[in-house]
Each structure stands twice: as structure tokens, then as C-alpha cells.
Amino acid sequence: MMILKRKRERIFYFLLIPSSLVVLTFMSLLSALVYSSIPALGRFGLSIYTRNVWDPVNDQYGGLAAIYGTVVTGVLSVAISAPFATAIAVFVNDISPKKIKSFIINLSDLLAAFPTVVYGFWGLLSLGPFLSHTLFAFLDSLFGLHRITNGPSILLASIVLAIMITPFASSLLREVYSQVPKSVDEAVYSLGLGKWELVVLKLSYIKRAFLGAYALAFGRAVGETVAVSLTIGNILNISPNLLDPGYTIPSLIISQFGTAYGIQYNVMFALALFLVVIGIAFVIISRLILRVRL
């Protein structure tokens, strides 16, 4: 370690405190999770993650349905959001006039700052019923996906999530996109090529960062609680029918935690631990992808 000789530089030692808080927070969160998970993992083993049963009366728990819902809504929301976020990044950087650009950027940043509960209520009360009569009815008639609710479903939650993560993902993307060097523009235009080729080449130039941005967005999507809880229907259900209600790990925890007792309480922690594992996995993946030089 560097030796701090001058007196006034001793103050730098105090900078250690906030930094060590990061470590402490991580350790204490993780150990609390693990500690409270142990009784459940000891009693049910990994079947907490592999069975689909939720029977507080007989104390039988398996959160597979919530894991299924978490992964499906995460993947689906990213898939829905990706084209929109990309389109926004391209539009504000290379297509729109300057005034519209800053307008869109400011509005998009504002949307990212909206409380998630607002998205949840809006999804439940406005978007859900609307989609139920339009898109969902259309999917029903097209594929025979039967609807049992007036909106709340895995698909609705995914769409709400997609809308929520798009401002975040598009701000990451437009940042990376805007950092493509001007020499690419010069090369493209000097060859008599146009905007189409410019956009195609820039997108291929940032494709790794693109994956990284979406790994981060996925991490956000799977961790989102309130908005999903309000729009997914909260039923432990593993159904390929996206119009069926479902559950995610966070929505399961928030809706049951208040009334949980005994081993059920520990099962919640075990599921939360799994969520952390998914989250960490995605942070690692996105780091690995983003680390590669552009």
C-alpha cells in the first residue's frame, strides 16, 4: 500500500470508510439471506427451486412457478424492449433534429425516474384492460390463447416491464452509440454511402455494448417488484399461455411476506437468494461483455 507521508494526506485514510461500507453491506446482506435460508434449504433441499407447490397448511413449498415467471417476464420484456430502445438510440443520435433530440432524451430520462408503483397502477388500471380488449383478444383469436383475467398476466407484466426498462436501456445504448468515433461517419460518407449504411455500421460497431446494456436491463427486469406484482396476477402457475396469470420471485415475496411465519418465512429468503444469484450472474455476464474493447 502507498505510504501517505504528508499530514494532510492522512485524511485519505478516511476514504477507506465508505469503501469498506460497500464490502460490509454486501457481506451482511448476503449473510442475512443465507442465514435465513438455511432452515428452508435444510428441510426441503433444492426442491424449493424445482417443485411447484405452495401449501402453507401442510408446510410444503416449492417456488418453481415464481422462478419460471421471473425468467419468462425478464426475457420477454428484454425482447420487447430491445427494438424500441435501439430505435430511440439511433433516432436521437443520427436522425432527429437537435431540438427533438433533447426533448426525447429529457422525457425518456424522466420516464426512467418515475416510481415503479405508477407503472404498476397504470398497467393494472389502464394498459391491462386496454390490451385485454385489443392485443390479447387478437392473440386469443389467432392462437386460441384463452384469457381468464381482464389483463393481469405474464404478458401484461412483461409489457409493463419492457416499457419501464426501455428508457434505461435506451439511455445506455444512446450513450454508447454516440461514442462511435466521428471517423466512422467520415469513412461512410466519403465512400458515397448514406445514412442507412452509417446506422448499420454503427450498430455492428457497438454490438457488444448492446449485449452488455441488455444484460443490465435484464437484471433490472428480474428484480422489479411492485409493478410486476400489480400486473402479473399473482397465481402460482407454470403455463406456456402468456395470457395466464403468474408469479415472479419478487412479487411472491412482497405479496406473502406480511403473513408468512415459520418455515414459509425461510422459504422466502431462499427464493430471494436465488434472485440474487440470477442478478449476480447477469452483472458478471454484462461486465464480461462490456469489458471487451469496442
Binding site: S183, V184, E186, A187, S190, L201, S204, Y205
Partner: peptide, 13 residues
């Protein structure tokens, strides 16, 4: 056609 001071091939291609 044009050639620039700092070589600007499409690095990723």
C-alpha cells in the same frame, strides 16, 4: 474518394 490523416478503416469489420 478520400483518404484521411488518421487511418479510418472500419475497425470492427
Amino acid at each position: 474518394g478520400m483518404v484521411f490523416q488518421i487511418p479510418n478503416p472500419f475497425h470492427h469489420l
